[in-house]
Every structure is written in structure tokens, then in C-alpha cells.
């Protein structure tokens, strides 16, 4: 069961049900989704439409109740915690609405966390975090604490952290939800640049203006994909989201 090499995400008839067996609460119903390498996908939909659950499953934070999920050709729908964690830290970068920086670690330490869990030595971690922070324009903020940063800077730190492992897939859950319009544009410009560099991005958003930046829009409703405007040609076909 191998997907075409160009698919980063391939969901096949994925169900996700919460609640008890007596009182099941289906969130995703027989969902199929294929995201090709280099695509920038925006997922929109009302709250409760299942888009966050979709993102959690795609991000290997959660496992589907039924169906299969192939990430870069590997079926990850039944992996145990150790392997799933490994997939998360090698394949996936997360950006969250409320940034989710560890408050008592400096900017560079936050960025280095994924490398730490990848057992990468201190010196290389420092070099790579410096490089990626320069890339997102935070080279001068390396030793600051998150509470000394503006919202936009926090989110750029989070993006740097998501990218530092050169993941196959960048996932963003309302990345601009807590930002004003100026910083929103700033972050979206960063995303566009990353996309341009070949990064595969799946982003949840409420903001249709933000969604327009993406090449492909998916609208969800009641755990199903209601509308998918189809795959646009990826900007470039590259395997991972690298810093450059």
C-alpha cells in the first residue's frame, strides 16, 4: 500500500469518534484527503466541523478511530507512542494560534526543543536555531524570553521552531488568530515565502482573507469535506520545509 511519492498526506476513509461506545460522538466521517508535496492548503469551516481534529490526526497528535493515514507513504494510523512521537519530531512542524512557546525558555531554547528530542548535540542545535531565527528575522531576539516578545515575534519564533527539524509538513492551527492585521500580513508573507521554497503547508483558519493566500481551500462541515477547490500546481516540488 504505497501512495504516489508526491503525496505528503493521504487520508483514506478516516473516521474519528469521541465519546463512549454507547454514546458515540463522530467528529470525522469517512474522510478522504490527499495533499501533494509543495501544496499550501487552507482548511476553513465552522467550529465543530472537525477541522481541528483533522489537523491533530494529520499532525500525529491523535490517531484515527478507523481508516488509514499515510504520511509520506508510511501508514502511521496504528503506530505506538514512541514511533508516533518520532514521526512528529521528524516529519511535522506545528504552529498554534496561541503560539505555545514554553514560557520559561528563551527564544532559542524554544526553537531548539525539537532538536533536543531528536538527540541532536548542543552545538549543532545552537547553530541551527541561530540560522532559522535569522531566517524568520529574529536573530536579534535569540536570548529573549517569550513574554518580552510581541505577538508577531512569538508566532515567528513558533514558526522557526516548527521548521527547525526540516519537516515534511508544516501544520498551522489558526496561526493568525491572535494577531493584528499588520502582523497577520507579516506571518502570511512568511508562509508564502515558505510555500514558495517548497514547503507543504496545511493551515486552519477562520479568516477568509488568510485562506485566500493558500493555493487550495477546503471547507469542512460536520466531519466531512464540503468543498475542495482542488489541487493547484505546487510552487515547487521539494520534499521538506527547509530553512532556506
Amino acid at each position: 500500500m504505497t501512495a504516489p511519492a508526491s503525496a505528503v498526506v493521504e487520508l483514506r476513509a478516516v473516521d474519528k469518534t469521541y465519546g463512549t461506545p454507547q454514546n458515540p460522538l463522530p467528529v470525522l466521517r469517512a474522510l478522504d484527503l490527499r495533499v501533494a508535496t509543495g501544496e499550501f492548503v487552507a482548511v476553513v469551516g465552522a467550529s465543530g466541523s472537525g477541522k481541528s481534529t483533522l489537523l491533530n490526526i494529520v499532525g500525529c497528535l491523535d490517531r484515527p478511530t478507523a481508516g488509514h493515514y499515510l504520511l509520506v507513504g508510511e501508514d502511521v494510523s496504528r503506530l505506538d507512542d514512541v514511533r508516533l512521537s518520532h514521526v512528529r519530531r521528524t516529519r511535522i512542524g506545528f504552529v498554534f494560534q496561541s503560539f505555545h512557546l514554553v514560557p520559561h525558555l528563551t527564544v532559542e531554547e524554544n526553537v531548539e526543543l525539537p532538536l533536543f528530542y531528536n538527540r541532536i548535540g548542543r552545538r549543532e542545535r545552537r547553530a541551527r536555531s541561530a540560522q532559522i531565527l535569522d531566517r524568520v528575522g529574529l536573530g536579534h531576539r535569540r536570548t529573549h524570553m517569550p513574554n518580552q516578545l510581541s505577538g508577531g515575534e512569538c508566532q515567528r519564533t513558533a514558526v522557526a521552531r516548527a521548521l527547525v527539524n526540516r519537516p515534511s509538513l508544516l501544520l498551522a492551527d489558526e496561526p493568525t488568530g491572535n494577531l493584528d492585521s499588520v502582523t497577520t500580513r507579516e506571518i502570511m508573507r512568511l508562509f508564502t515565502e515558505l510555500h514558495g521554497a517548497g514547503c507543504t503547508i496545511v493551515m486552519i483558519t477562520h479568516d477568509l482573507g488568510v485562506a485566500d493566500v493558500a493555493g487550495r481551500r477546503i471547507r469542512m462541515r460536520d466531519g466531512r469535506i464540503e468543498h475542495d477547490d482542488g489541487s493547484a500546481a505546487p510552487a515547487a516540488a521539494e520534499g521538506s520545509c527547509s530553512a532556506n
Partner: peptide, 16 residues
């Protein structure tokens, strides 16, 4: 709790 969630999302396993 949140810090633990963040670390897990970033790729920390149970053992970590």
C-alpha cells in the same frame, strides 16, 4: 499541563 502538551506536539515521547 500546557508545557507538556507543547513538548508532546513537538515530538517528545512518553519516555521523554
Amino acid at each position: 499541563t500546557r508545557e507538556i502538551g507543547i513538548r508532546r506536539a513537538i515530538g517528545a515521547s512518553h519516555r521523554d
